[in-house]
Nucleic acid binder design. Structure first.
Ligand SMILES: [Zn+2]
Ligand SMILES: [Zn+2]
Ligand SMILES: [Zn+2]
Ligand SMILES: [Zn+2]
Lengths: 151, 151
DNA sequence: TTAAAAATTGTTATATTATAACATTTAAGT
DNA sequence: ACTTAAATGTTATAATATAACAATTTTTAA
């Protein structure tokens, strides 16, 4: 699905950006949270909470479900990670500084997910809900299908 | 949220339409499936699977989780019901004959959900994914927020 | 019309996803 | 150093969903 040439670059830049965002916001980017974010970024395939749990167990942590879900809560609140409700999985945010009007393409063949932005889409959605005098708080937009590489 | 004057009318028309759709398609609209659809249509607030289970138990059925999930599978496949992934709940489809380009407004105050259609939205989504040479199979679009009545 | 096949429902067990509640440890502020 | 707040550890359980096989009902077709 993705135009990811060197995934080490993806990982390192995501980690660096997370560091600086947490620093700016005065949030504690602990070892555990760092490790969970890194595990999520291991690939562009959304990760299941209990897979993170298994991987954490292989490392230093005494990991149990709350260990993972608390780290996920932090990463979700900070905008470093997104939950994909249609598949109950988590993926690193590709541009956490300004995540807005974004949606997800999820390939059911290679399982990769891509975060996309579309101002037209944002406009269309806003138009639609304003017709209904609705005050949006959270938009979930996920498209399951087949990506270009998986034809 | 809704412009529902007489909800009995909603229920009866939904049930009638379900009957005729199943008849046309040669599908077996059994008592169990009928009852589950009716329970979902009891209100415009999306229903949880295990709430359906409890209500079924109060009736004739020897209801266990698979009882409900199988009926839900049937209703979902037939397009009579939708699952709202962002809240793990089920709602009756308001126009099962041509459900396309629809999305859901879900009020976090009154909990009602409204199914909306927007051709502009459909177009914007199609434009966005064609840019990514993506072949969509299923679109999940759910907006959580506050409806006009709940300001 | 009855036997075989298919679909539906019953039943038991278990998998998957997520949170509550309270104890302990670690970090921050005074 | 002492106090407080935040983070993590730990045990238990809640909430959501499916697997596997048995019994029943409906449909198909011999
Ligand atoms: Zn990459
Ligand atoms: Zn994002
Ligand atoms: Zn109504
Ligand atoms: Zn619909």
């Amino acid at each position: 699905m993705l135009d990811c040439q060197d995934h080490e670059v993806c990982i390192e830049s995501a980690m660096r950006e997370a560091e600086s965002i947490c620093q700016e916001k005065g949030l504690r980017f602990t070892e555990l949270r760092r490790e969970v974010l890194r595990l999520i970024w291991l690939s562009h395939i959304p990760t299941k909470a209990y897979d993170i749990l298994e991987k954490l167990k292989g490392k230093a942590w005494s990991a149990k479900p709350p260990t993972v879900y608390r780290a996920l809560d932090f990463l979700l609140e900070t905008g470093l990670v997104h939950k994909l409700d249609s598949i109950n999985a988590y993926i690193g945010c590709s541009h956490p500084r300004e995540h807005d009007g974004c949606y997800f393409l999820i390939c059911t063949d290679c399982n990769e997910a891509k975060e996309c932005c579309s101002p037209e889409l944002t406009d269309a959605i806003e138009l639609a809900w304003s017709k209904n005098s609705f005050r949006p708080k959270k938009v979930t937009l996920e498209v399951l299908g087949q990506c270009g590489q998986c034809d």
